[in-house]
Simulated scan of single mutants.
Amino acid sequence: MADPQRTITLIVVDDHPVVRDGLRGMFDSAPGFEVLGEAADGVAGVDLATRLDPDVVLMDLRMPGGGGVDAIAELTRRGARSKVLVLTTYDTDSDTLPAIEAGATGYLLKDAPREELFTAVRAAADGRTVLSPAVASRLVSRVRTPAAAREEPLSAREREVLALVAKGTPNRGIAAELFISEATVKTHLTHLYAKLGVKDRAAAVAVAYDRGILG
């Protein structure tokens, strides 16, 4: 858990100057945050995040000159320390799941209340998966399948893996925590995805919270 007294650094990546200005003003006026810089597209965002090493990157998804999903994937490939929190306009955005799969810590809608956004950035800085209630509900409805209705119970080990996924722990970290191989972690993930009727980590977390598997 991050020190609640420390200042969380962030950068804003969005192609709309008004959005960037609004977010910078919001965070600059709140204690405990420092906006290190801004970028207008994903390519510039990756460069900025690499140079400034912020705790959190607020990332738009659809931007001319370089979209958010590709930028997130590149930051993940480079092993960036920064956590990416996607801010999307629509909860139906088809880029949302690919963004999570690419390595984003979570996502919110741009109309999220100030305090929700502040809380989400703090959570993202701690490595916790962030799903706004509206987006989580939409995500759950999108990933449900007839097979999921049978709700096959998760094993104790699968629940342990899922709990670590919910904390934002990567496969390597899960393997170290549970003293198992990364290949075994992937096998557990495949099984719990099938039982929950989902295809990725964020959807698994959303469905698990919805069903009360995660408290």
Rank of each mutant, 00 (worst) to 15 (best):
R150D: 04
L139T: 10
A123T: 08
E151M: 08
L131E: 07
A134R: 15
E152P: 01
A124N: 04
R144N: 02
V143C: 11
R159K: 12
V135F: 13
T119I: 07
L117R: 12
V135L: 15
V135G: 00
A147W: 14
L117V: 14
E116V: 11
L117W: 12
A125V: 11
T145L: 09
R150S: 03
P153H: 04
A134I: 14
E116F: 09
A123G: 04
V143N: 02
G127P: 02
S132M: 07
A147T: 08
A149Y: 14
V130N: 04
A156N: 02
A125M: 12
R159V: 02
R122E: 06
T145W: 15
S137W: 12
R157F: 02
P153N: 09
E116H: 15
L131S: 02
S155A: 07
E158S: 01
R150I: 10
R128N: 08
E158Q: 13
F118C: 00
A134Q: 15
D126H: 11
R122D: 06
L154W: 04
S132L: 08
E158H: 04
A136I: 02
R144S: 06
S155C: 01
V130T: 06
V140Q: 01
D126E: 13
R128P: 00
D126R: 12
S155W: 03
R138D: 07
V140P: 00
A147C: 01
P153Y: 02
A120N: 04
R157V: 02
R138V: 08
V135S: 01
L117I: 14
R138M: 13
A134S: 14
F118V: 00
R128Q: 14
P153W: 01
T129L: 15
S155Q: 03
F118Q: 00
E151T: 02
A148W: 13
A147H: 10
T145I: 08
A148H: 11
A136V: 04
R142D: 09
A125D: 11
S155H: 03
A124R: 05
L154V: 01
P153C: 03
T119K: 12
A156T: 05
V140A: 03
A149R: 11
A156Q: 06
R157D: 05
S155L: 03
R150H: 11
F118I: 01
F118H: 03
E151D: 10
E151K: 10
T119G: 11
V130F: 13
L139K: 09
R122M: 07
L139M: 15
V143Y: 12
A147R: 12
D126F: 13
A124D: 07
G127I: 05
A123E: 13
P146E: 09
A120I: 09
L131G: 01
S132K: 05
L154F: 09
E116Y: 12
E116G: 15
T119A: 15
A136M: 14
E158R: 02
R142S: 09
V143G: 00
P133M: 13
S137N: 10
T129F: 15
E116Q: 15
R157L: 08
R122T: 05
R157A: 03
S132Q: 08
F118P: 00
V135W: 06
R157K: 06
A123S: 15
R138F: 14
A120H: 08
E152D: 10
R150E: 09
A120M: 10
A156I: 09
R157P: 00
L131K: 04
E158K: 02
G127L: 11
A120F: 13
P146H: 12
A147G: 04
